[in-house]
Amino acid sequence: MIYGGKTTGVIVTGATGKQGAFHIALMNEYARQVGGKGVVAGVTPGKAGQEVAGVPVYNSIRDALKEHDAEASVLFVPGFAAGDSIMEAASAGLSLVVAITEHIPVHDTMRAISYASIHGCSVIGPNCPGLLSPGEIKMGIMPVHLSSPGQVGVISRSGTLTYEIVDQLTRAGLGQSTIVGIGGDPVIGQTFADVLHRFEQDDRTKAVVILGEVGGSLEEEGAKATDLPVAAYIAGISAPPEKRMGHAGAIIEGGEGDARSKIARLEKIGVPVASRPSEIPRLIKELL
Protein backbone atom coordinates (compact mmCIF):
# COMPACT_ATOMS: atom_id res chain seq x y z
CA MET A 1 0.00 0.00 0.00
CA ILE A 2 1.89 3.06 -1.17
CA TYR A 3 -0.49 5.63 -2.64
CA GLY A 4 -3.58 4.78 -0.64
CA GLY A 5 -5.51 1.95 1.01
CA LYS A 6 -8.83 0.96 2.50
CA THR A 7 -9.33 4.34 4.16
CA THR A 8 -8.63 6.39 1.01
CA GLY A 9 -11.64 8.19 -0.44
CA VAL A 10 -11.67 8.53 -4.23
CA ILE A 11 -13.42 11.02 -6.51
CA VAL A 12 -13.89 10.08 -10.16
CA THR A 13 -13.71 12.97 -12.64
CA GLY A 14 -15.55 12.31 -15.89
CA ALA A 15 -18.00 10.16 -13.93
CA THR A 16 -20.97 10.34 -16.25
CA GLY A 17 -19.19 9.07 -19.37
CA LYS A 18 -19.40 5.39 -20.38
CA GLN A 19 -15.90 4.57 -19.08
CA GLY A 20 -16.34 6.55 -15.87
CA ALA A 21 -19.61 4.89 -14.93
CA PHE A 22 -18.37 1.39 -15.81
CA HIS A 23 -15.19 1.69 -13.75
CA ILE A 24 -16.82 3.39 -10.74
CA ALA A 25 -18.91 0.24 -10.44
CA LEU A 26 -15.85 -2.04 -10.70
CA MET A 27 -13.77 0.02 -8.25
CA ASN A 28 -16.58 -0.02 -5.72
CA GLU A 29 -17.19 -3.73 -6.19
CA TYR A 30 -13.55 -4.23 -5.21
CA ALA A 31 -13.87 -1.78 -2.31
CA ARG A 32 -16.82 -3.83 -0.97
CA GLN A 33 -14.81 -7.07 -1.30
CA VAL A 34 -11.86 -5.73 0.70
CA GLY A 35 -13.85 -3.51 3.06
CA GLY A 36 -12.48 -0.24 1.71
CA LYS A 37 -13.95 3.20 1.24
CA GLY A 38 -13.71 3.29 -2.56
CA VAL A 39 -15.25 5.92 -4.83
CA VAL A 40 -17.27 8.39 -2.73
CA ALA A 41 -18.26 10.89 -5.42
CA GLY A 42 -18.22 11.64 -9.10
CA VAL A 43 -17.57 14.95 -10.86
CA THR A 44 -18.81 16.12 -14.26
CA PRO A 45 -19.35 19.86 -14.78
CA GLY A 46 -23.05 20.59 -15.34
CA LYS A 47 -24.22 17.18 -14.14
CA ALA A 48 -24.66 17.85 -10.40
CA GLY A 49 -27.52 15.96 -8.80
CA GLN A 50 -27.20 12.86 -10.96
CA GLU A 51 -26.15 9.52 -9.59
CA VAL A 52 -23.75 7.10 -11.31
CA ALA A 53 -23.38 3.50 -10.14
CA GLY A 54 -24.81 4.54 -6.77
CA VAL A 55 -22.40 7.48 -6.38
CA PRO A 56 -23.56 11.14 -6.27
CA VAL A 57 -22.27 13.48 -8.98
CA TYR A 58 -21.11 17.07 -8.41
CA ASN A 59 -20.18 19.97 -10.68
CA SER A 60 -16.70 20.36 -9.24
CA ILE A 61 -14.20 18.65 -6.96
CA ARG A 62 -14.61 21.50 -4.46
CA ASP A 63 -18.35 20.87 -4.31
CA ALA A 64 -17.79 17.13 -3.82
CA LEU A 65 -15.33 17.78 -0.99
CA LYS A 66 -17.97 19.80 0.90
CA GLU A 67 -19.96 16.57 1.31
CA HIS A 68 -17.29 13.85 1.27
CA ASP A 69 -13.78 13.11 2.49
CA ALA A 70 -11.42 12.19 -0.32
CA GLU A 71 -7.67 12.26 -0.95
CA ALA A 72 -7.42 11.06 -4.55
CA SER A 73 -9.08 11.45 -7.92
CA VAL A 74 -9.19 9.15 -10.92
CA LEU A 75 -9.71 10.79 -14.33
CA PHE A 76 -11.79 9.43 -17.19
CA VAL A 77 -12.16 12.75 -19.02
CA PRO A 78 -11.25 13.19 -22.73
CA GLY A 79 -7.68 14.16 -23.67
CA PHE A 80 -8.32 17.84 -24.33
CA ALA A 81 -9.85 18.30 -20.83
CA ALA A 82 -7.50 16.15 -18.77
CA GLY A 83 -4.82 18.77 -18.03
CA ASP A 84 -7.53 21.01 -16.61
CA SER A 85 -8.93 18.18 -14.46
CA ILE A 86 -5.50 17.42 -13.01
CA MET A 87 -5.07 21.08 -12.02
CA GLU A 88 -8.58 21.24 -10.55
CA ALA A 89 -7.86 18.24 -8.31
CA ALA A 90 -4.52 19.66 -7.17
CA SER A 91 -5.99 23.07 -6.49
CA ALA A 92 -8.82 21.54 -4.40
CA GLY A 93 -6.19 19.94 -2.15
CA LEU A 94 -6.21 16.29 -3.28
CA SER A 95 -2.82 14.63 -2.86
CA LEU A 96 -3.08 12.16 -5.75
CA VAL A 97 -4.44 12.20 -9.29
CA VAL A 98 -4.57 9.02 -11.35
CA ALA A 99 -4.97 10.07 -15.00
CA ILE A 100 -6.27 7.13 -17.06
CA THR A 101 -6.90 9.38 -20.08
CA GLU A 102 -4.99 8.75 -23.32
CA HIS A 103 -4.15 11.33 -26.02
CA ILE A 104 -3.51 14.32 -23.75
CA PRO A 105 -1.41 16.91 -25.60
CA VAL A 106 2.02 16.67 -23.96
CA HIS A 107 2.20 20.42 -23.28
CA ASP A 108 -1.01 20.12 -21.23
CA THR A 109 0.53 17.26 -19.27
CA MET A 110 3.72 19.22 -18.56
CA ARG A 111 1.83 22.31 -17.38
CA ALA A 112 -0.57 20.27 -15.24
CA ILE A 113 2.25 18.27 -13.62
CA SER A 114 4.20 21.46 -12.83
CA TYR A 115 1.06 23.01 -11.37
CA ALA A 116 0.21 19.89 -9.34
CA SER A 117 3.71 19.71 -7.89
CA ILE A 118 3.38 23.31 -6.61
CA HIS A 119 0.28 22.09 -4.72
CA GLY A 120 2.04 18.98 -3.38
CA CYS A 121 -0.11 16.71 -5.51
CA SER A 122 1.32 13.58 -7.18
CA VAL A 123 0.13 12.56 -10.64
CA ILE A 124 0.10 8.95 -11.86
CA GLY A 125 -0.14 8.73 -15.65
CA PRO A 126 -1.48 9.97 -17.98
CA ASN A 127 -2.29 7.15 -20.41
CA CYS A 128 -2.14 4.49 -17.70
CA PRO A 129 -4.26 1.72 -16.14
CA GLY A 130 -3.89 3.22 -12.65
CA LEU A 131 -2.90 1.25 -9.59
CA LEU A 132 -3.96 -1.75 -7.58
CA SER A 133 -2.86 -2.71 -4.07
CA PRO A 134 -4.33 -6.23 -3.78
CA GLY A 135 -6.55 -6.51 -0.72
CA GLU A 136 -6.44 -2.74 -0.17
CA ILE A 137 -7.52 -0.50 -3.03
CA LYS A 138 -7.97 -0.21 -6.76
CA MET A 139 -7.72 3.21 -8.41
CA GLY A 140 -8.07 2.70 -12.15
CA ILE A 141 -8.99 -0.03 -14.59
CA MET A 142 -6.75 -3.03 -13.79
CA PRO A 143 -8.52 -6.38 -13.74
CA VAL A 144 -8.37 -7.67 -10.16
CA HIS A 145 -8.84 -11.41 -10.76
CA LEU A 146 -5.24 -11.92 -11.97
CA SER A 147 -3.66 -10.37 -8.86
CA SER A 148 -2.98 -11.69 -5.37
CA PRO A 149 -1.64 -9.96 -2.24
CA GLY A 150 2.08 -10.37 -1.57
CA GLN A 151 5.56 -8.87 -1.50
CA VAL A 152 6.33 -7.96 -5.12
CA GLY A 153 5.93 -4.40 -6.34
CA VAL A 154 5.24 -3.89 -10.05
CA ILE A 155 5.86 -0.64 -11.97
CA SER A 156 4.95 -0.50 -15.64
CA ARG A 157 4.63 1.87 -18.62
CA SER A 158 2.05 -0.46 -20.10
CA GLY A 159 -1.45 -1.84 -19.41
CA THR A 160 -2.08 -5.32 -20.72
CA LEU A 161 1.59 -6.33 -20.48
CA THR A 162 1.28 -5.56 -16.76
CA TYR A 163 -1.71 -7.89 -16.49
CA GLU A 164 0.29 -10.57 -18.30
CA ILE A 165 3.16 -10.30 -15.81
CA VAL A 166 0.86 -10.05 -12.78
CA ASP A 167 -0.89 -13.20 -13.98
CA GLN A 168 2.46 -15.00 -14.28
CA LEU A 169 3.59 -13.80 -10.84
CA THR A 170 0.34 -14.98 -9.27
CA ARG A 171 0.59 -18.39 -10.98
CA ALA A 172 4.15 -18.72 -9.65
CA GLY A 173 2.91 -18.04 -6.11
CA LEU A 174 4.34 -14.51 -6.05
CA GLY A 175 1.74 -12.08 -4.73
CA GLN A 176 1.94 -8.33 -5.32
CA SER A 177 2.13 -5.45 -2.83
CA THR A 178 1.13 -2.71 -5.27
CA ILE A 179 0.94 -2.63 -9.06
CA VAL A 180 1.40 0.83 -10.57
CA GLY A 181 0.85 1.63 -14.24
CA ILE A 182 2.83 4.86 -14.66
CA GLY A 183 1.69 5.45 -18.24
CA GLY A 184 2.83 5.23 -21.85
CA ASP A 185 3.26 8.93 -22.59
CA PRO A 186 6.63 10.67 -23.06
CA VAL A 187 5.99 12.89 -20.04
CA ILE A 188 4.39 11.27 -17.00
CA GLY A 189 3.93 12.36 -13.40
CA GLN A 190 5.23 9.58 -11.17
CA THR A 191 8.30 7.96 -12.73
CA PHE A 192 10.00 4.64 -11.95
CA ALA A 193 12.23 6.55 -9.50
CA ASP A 194 9.26 8.12 -7.68
CA VAL A 195 7.38 4.83 -7.29
CA LEU A 196 10.54 2.96 -6.22
CA HIS A 197 11.07 5.62 -3.58
CA ARG A 198 7.57 4.90 -2.22
CA PHE A 199 8.21 1.14 -2.29
CA GLU A 200 11.36 1.70 -0.21
CA GLN A 201 9.15 3.08 2.57
CA ASP A 202 6.66 0.21 2.28
CA ASP A 203 7.37 -2.67 4.70
CA ARG A 204 5.46 -5.13 2.58
CA THR A 205 7.47 -4.73 -0.64
CA LYS A 206 10.58 -6.94 -0.84
CA ALA A 207 11.36 -6.83 -4.58
CA VAL A 208 10.16 -4.85 -7.58
CA VAL A 209 9.47 -5.66 -11.23
CA ILE A 210 10.15 -2.84 -13.69
CA LEU A 211 8.25 -3.20 -16.97
CA GLY A 212 9.75 -0.72 -19.37
CA GLU A 213 9.77 -0.13 -23.07
CA VAL A 214 11.62 1.81 -25.76
CA GLY A 215 11.87 5.60 -25.42
CA GLY A 216 13.61 7.80 -22.88
CA SER A 217 15.73 6.57 -19.97
CA LEU A 218 13.37 6.60 -16.97
CA GLU A 219 13.87 2.85 -16.33
CA GLU A 220 17.64 3.18 -15.84
CA GLU A 221 17.31 6.41 -13.85
CA GLY A 222 14.86 4.71 -11.49
CA ALA A 223 16.79 1.48 -11.02
CA LYS A 224 19.98 3.41 -10.35
CA ALA A 225 18.40 5.41 -7.53
CA THR A 226 17.07 2.54 -5.40
CA ASP A 227 18.44 -0.04 -2.96
CA LEU A 228 15.51 -2.40 -3.47
CA PRO A 229 16.13 -5.61 -5.43
CA VAL A 230 14.79 -5.01 -8.96
CA ALA A 231 14.21 -7.22 -12.02
CA ALA A 232 13.18 -5.79 -15.38
CA TYR A 233 11.65 -6.55 -18.74
CA ILE A 234 12.01 -4.04 -21.58
CA ALA A 235 9.55 -4.29 -24.47
CA GLY A 236 10.50 -3.19 -27.97
CA ILE A 237 13.77 -4.98 -28.77
CA SER A 238 12.32 -5.43 -32.28
CA ALA A 239 11.03 -1.85 -32.56
CA PRO A 240 12.34 0.15 -35.54
CA PRO A 241 13.78 3.64 -34.86
CA GLU A 242 11.66 6.83 -35.18
CA LYS A 243 8.36 4.89 -35.12
CA ARG A 244 5.81 5.29 -32.34
CA MET A 245 4.96 1.80 -31.08
CA GLY A 246 1.38 2.40 -29.93
CA HIS A 247 2.29 4.52 -26.91
CA ALA A 248 3.08 8.18 -27.56
CA GLY A 249 6.26 7.69 -25.51
CA ALA A 250 7.40 4.43 -27.10
CA ILE A 251 9.73 5.83 -29.73
CA ILE A 252 13.46 5.57 -30.34
CA GLU A 253 14.54 9.16 -31.09
CA GLY A 254 17.89 10.48 -32.26
CA GLY A 255 19.46 7.08 -31.53
CA GLU A 256 18.33 7.27 -27.88
CA GLY A 257 16.07 4.99 -25.88
CA ASP A 258 16.41 1.73 -27.82
CA ALA A 259 15.80 -1.52 -25.93
CA ARG A 260 19.29 -2.99 -26.27
CA SER A 261 21.11 0.01 -24.79
CA LYS A 262 18.50 0.27 -22.03
CA ILE A 263 19.01 -3.42 -21.18
CA ALA A 264 22.79 -2.98 -21.26
CA ARG A 265 22.60 -0.01 -18.87
CA LEU A 266 20.29 -1.90 -16.49
CA GLU A 267 22.53 -4.96 -16.48
CA LYS A 268 25.56 -2.75 -15.86
CA ILE A 269 24.04 -1.55 -12.59
CA GLY A 270 23.25 -5.13 -11.60
CA VAL A 271 19.58 -5.37 -12.59
CA PRO A 272 18.66 -8.77 -14.06
CA VAL A 273 16.68 -8.28 -17.30
CA ALA A 274 14.31 -10.94 -18.64
CA SER A 275 14.58 -11.70 -22.36
CA ARG A 276 10.96 -12.99 -22.29
CA PRO A 277 8.08 -11.98 -19.99
CA SER A 278 7.84 -15.59 -18.74
CA GLU A 279 11.29 -15.31 -17.12
CA ILE A 280 10.18 -12.63 -14.65
CA PRO A 281 8.89 -14.96 -11.90
CA ARG A 282 12.19 -16.88 -11.85
CA LEU A 283 14.26 -13.67 -11.67
CA ILE A 284 12.10 -12.36 -8.82
CA LYS A 285 12.39 -15.66 -6.89
CA GLU A 286 16.17 -15.35 -7.13
CA LEU A 287 15.99 -11.85 -5.62
CA LEU A 288 13.73 -12.75 -2.68
Partner: peptide, 25 residues
Protein backbone atom coordinates in the same frame (compact mmCIF):
# COMPACT_ATOMS: atom_id res chain seq x y z
CA UNK B 1 -2.03 1.90 -33.59
CA UNK B 2 -0.32 0.32 -36.56
CA UNK B 3 3.28 0.21 -37.72
CA UNK B 4 4.45 -1.51 -40.90
CA UNK B 5 7.44 -3.81 -40.56
CA UNK B 6 9.22 -6.08 -43.02
CA UNK B 7 8.54 -9.69 -41.96
CA UNK B 8 5.83 -12.23 -42.76
CA UNK B 9 4.03 -12.79 -39.42
CA UNK B 10 1.07 -10.48 -38.89
CA UNK B 11 0.51 -9.38 -35.28
CA UNK B 12 -2.62 -8.15 -33.51
CA UNK B 13 -2.57 -7.43 -29.80
CA UNK B 14 -4.36 -5.25 -27.28
CA UNK B 15 -2.22 -2.70 -25.50
CA UNK B 16 1.05 -1.30 -26.83
CA UNK B 17 3.30 -3.10 -24.34
CA UNK B 18 1.77 -6.53 -24.86
CA UNK B 19 1.85 -6.11 -28.64
CA UNK B 20 5.50 -5.03 -28.53
CA UNK B 21 6.30 -7.99 -26.29
CA UNK B 22 4.62 -10.26 -28.86
CA UNK B 23 6.87 -8.83 -31.61
CA UNK B 24 9.89 -9.33 -29.38
CA UNK B 25 8.96 -12.96 -28.76
Amino acid sequence: SYVELTGDIGVIGNGAGLTMATLDL
